[in-house]
């Protein structure tokens, strides 16, 4: 019984962690899955979101659960400008150029933040942090994680709605299907892509803001999330927003179970082993039906 409850606890914690992963993954699904931009700066963007939320908290006393909105707006603008200024000029070139460009930009962001704020670890203190929701005698859920879970769920649904049911989202998917036919249908490719890139990055910014209360903050905090975001997109099936969200939840649960049975340090390796198996055995992803 003891074992059952500890496993159940790990699974529930995994779902809570996974909801934030899902947000990061959905942003990447829009950028990499739909728009085919290999964005190696995704984690760095998320890290910037954490710092924005942190500054809003320290400077203006704004609670991170509202501060993430500021982070989203800032990141949207940053992503929009990044696409317009740097990505657009190399759009027709090979994927590897995008990889190098985004890697380089990620370095600029990470080292820039380190120059501005130092390499120290920061953490914020909310009275909420110690609160838990107890379910029965064995299971307890941490309050800040629950709140971010709720927010992530809502924003994830919003992002899904945006991609699947708005004009802009349709246009983004149309460009993904055929980059040459889309402009003939009256789609302003550059505008749509810049906006979608901004929105994808803003999703990472939101996740950063929501992670702030429960995570240490340091300049390279985002690095691990870049690769995880790619794992989620491939796991969920290229171009599938809901697939990436599901993959985020799965990743959260798998990581927590790995931590429980093998130790936290193996979690990342398990992520990548799953990733490699999916890539080689089922390249369309677990939840996806096809490659767009």
């Amino acid at each position: 019984m003891e074992r059952f409850f500890s496993a159940l606890q790990a699974i529930l914690n995994g779902v809570l962690t996974g909801s934030l992963y899902a947000l990061i993954g959905m942003g990447m699904a829009l950028i990499f899955g739909v728009m085919r931009i290999v964005n190696f700066a995704h984690g760095a963007f998320m890290m910037v979101g954490m710092y924005v939320t942190y500054l809003l908290f320290q400077g203006a006393g704004l609670n991170p659960y509202f501060g993430f909105i500021g982070s989203a707006m800032f990141l949207f603008l940053l992503g929009y400008l990044f696409y317009r200024g740097l990505l657009k000029p190399i759009r027709g070139r090979s994927d590897f150029m995008q990889i190098l460009l985004t890697l380089g930009f990620g370095l600029i962001l990470t080292d820039g933040i380190q120059l501005l704020f130092g390499a120290d670890y920061h953490q914020i203190n909310l009275p909420l942090l110690g609160k838990n929701l107890r379910l029965g005698s064995q299971i307890s859920l941490n309050a800040p994680w629950l709140i971010s879970f709720g927010i992530a769920l809502m924003l994830g649904a919003l992002l899904y709605f945006f991609v699947m049911h708005t004009m802009l989202g349709r246009a983004a998917r149309a460009i993904a299907q055929n980059r040459y036919a889309a402009p003939l249908m009256g789609i302003n490719v550059d505008r749509v892509q810049a906006l979608s890139f901004g929105i994808g990055v803003a999703a990472a910014g939101v996740a950063g803001g929501l992670l702030l209360p429960v995570f240490y903050l340091y300049p390279t905090v985002g690095d691990q999330f870049t690769l995880k975001a790619f794992v989620m997109v491939v796991l969920g099936g290229m171009g599938s927003i809901q697939g990436a969200a599901m993959a985020g939840l799965v990743l959260g649960v798998v990581e927590n179970l790995t931590s429980l049975y093998w130790g936290n340090e193996w979690a990342l390796a398990v992520d990548f082993v799953i990733f490699l198996s999916v890539l080689s055995l089922r390249p369309s992803g677990i939840f996806g039906s096809q490659r767009v």
Partner: peptide, 17 residues
């Protein structure tokens, strides 16, 4: 000193562009 990674990143971006 500490800014060398930033410059390094800038160098990569410039080469790509």
């Amino acid at each position: 000193h500490e800014a060398h990674l930033l410059i390094y990143g800038l160098l990569i971006v410039l080469v790509v562009l």
